[in-house]
């Protein structure tokens, strides 16, 4: 029983320290232009690598994931707000899950 709580504490502390140390203790602005450039591109690259190819597995069913992705790409391309894109993608995936089996029958 207590073994589980010690394990949870080990997980939580390890995860927290990794997140905390650079944020708390790197206070200087980095001046090196190359490192600045890398740090500038990282968020975009992280988001892209997180999304692709995972988005195609996000609904546990490829056709609905493709439907959601197409809707998301179109709305995002035209600059719709984040929450609109997110919910429309979900709605499209949900509709595809309900309707595609009926159409393909």
């Amino acid at each position: 029983m207590s073994r589980i709580f010690i394990a949870i504490a080990v997980m939580a502390l390890t995860t927290y320290i990794i997140r905390m140390v650079p944020f708390a203790f790197v206070r200087k602005k980095i001046k090196n232009r190359f490192i600045q450039s890398v740090l500038y591109y990282i968020p975009y690259a992280v988001l892209s690598a997180m999304t692709i190819p995972s988005i195609f597995y996000a609904t546990q069913d490829l056709p609905s994931a493709i439907a959601g992705t197409v809707v998301a790409v179109v709305l995002a391309y035209f600059g719709c707000p984040l929450i609109v894109v997110a919910l429309s993608a979900s709605a499209a995936a949900y509709l595809a899950m309900l309707l595609l089996p009926l159409i393909l029958q």
Partner: peptide, 18 residues
């Protein structure tokens, strides 16, 4: 399952306009 794609939709909405 359908909610699972919301997050990725948001990511696309963040990166595609820039």
């Amino acid at each position: 399952n359908a909610l699972g794609i919301a997050l990725y939709g948001m990511f696309l909405a963040i990166i595609l306009p820039p």
